[in-house]
Write a protein that binds this DNA or RNA. Structure first.
Lengths: 213, 213
DNA sequence: CGCGCCGCTGAGCAAGCGCTTAGCGCCCGG
DNA sequence: CCGGGCGCTAAGCGCTTGCTCAGCGGCGCG
């Protein structure tokens, strides 16, 4: 199997929960197109074409183009929330949990940078109702991360002056990976995760340096 | 003068170098529209309307809508490069220069967040030639920041394992301010600059804590 | 006072947009 | 072997888009 085919298969697996097959192919095609050109520059003909169908077929599975973006955003943000939740609720001290959160969160944004780009940078194209739903998922992700950092500050593991500000910065750092990351670049998603975990532990003034590996 | 009028005046001053007046009003209107809805979702009628003219007037001053974006991008990136250059070439140790660079760079992205949003997140809408020109300005900004961090690493002021990676993260952090910053939010641009300078000095393991103010 | 020029407008063109509809062919239960 | 329904397509509708162009008005100069 070629590299391109492998990538296509991996992208398809990401949307395994979407059925039937035609709907999944449409989601996969839309993510690729939205990430490449942006939501507004992408036409329904382009999405349908990438999925190997006629433009009209799109409307059997989704009411509008915006609903496609909404579905993508929902699934993507739920995945991001689950990643943050797993780290936040894990056993261990704040240092380990923060390192794990940043490592996995940043790595996901690198590995799935096309999906991440869409869900992080095309939000404004959502309708007001859909935006509100997604904004709630984002607030919950923020709250989980803030909880870890607050724990570390309370226990004395971290030295942070401004917990909400630092949380915002950490989240911003991880999210922005989706903007600059390229699969052709010099860094693997694992390396980005490791680098970012290290940088963030320094940002919060964690007392014990983690194993640099 | 009302707050809205004051903001409008401040936005207009930002483009003082653009003449004649009608061309400046168009740039100002385009920045506002592009930042609010994105380049592709903004119509020439919308831009002209905000500038108080008919759609046709736009084409007396700019050949295409894309040229407007190019002009905005060029001026904005040159400003960003100048900010970074001023900090990089200043007297003083790497710690002071890095703190100054991050403080002013992040503050600019907060204060001029509409302009910054356009130049940082609408790049893909540029034509290939124009994109290449802008990409060069961005590389030069990156190189200046990397120089400061490298200096600190060489002199022993900083402890950084991965200079290009850390540079990328610092730049990413500052740039992403444009995405989340809101004038209605709890933080002033000065506060963002101060917070970010502090966080970045920790990221590079600067030995001496700077004056917290 | 009148004339030319220049910034601008009103009207509109071709193209492409999101989305709809009528109908085709294949698959499956009887 | 047939008939109904479902996933899909070809065609195209109404509208908006970026952009054009003929001509108007008012200001400066002679």
């Amino acid at each position: 199997m070629g590299a391109a085919a492998q990538r296509a298969e991996a992208e398809n697996e990401e949307w395994a929960g979407v059925t039937p097959d035609a709907a999944r192919r449409l989601v996969s095609a839309a993510v690729a197109a939205f990430a490449e050109r942006g939501y507004h520059a992408t036409t329904t003909r382009d999405i349908a074409g990438r999925a190997g169908m006629s433009p009209a077929a799109l409307y059997i599975h989704y009411k509008t183009k915006e609903e496609l973006l909404y579905r993508i955003s929902g699934i993507g943000h739920e995945k991001a929330l689950r990643i943050m939740g797993a780290a936040a609720e894990a056993e261990g001290g704040a240092t380990e949990r923060l390192a794990d959160a940043v490592r996995t969160f940043a790595r996901w944004h690198a590995e799935h940078h096309t999906t991440a780009r869409v869900i992080q940078y095309e939000l404004q194209a959502l309708g007001a109702d859909h935006y509100a739903e997604i904004a709630d998922l984002r607030r919950r992700t923020d709250r989980l991360l803030r909880g870890i950092i607050q724990d570390g500050a309370d226990s004395g593991e971290f030295r942070v002056d401004d917990v909400p500000g630092t949380t915002l910065a950490v989240l911003s750092l991880c999210v922005d990976v989706a903007r600059w990351f390229s699969a052709d670049g010099p860094r693997t998603p694992d390396e980005v995760g490791a680098l970012y975990a290290d940088l963030v532990l320094r940002m919060v003034g964690a007392r014990t340096a983690p194993a640099t590996e």
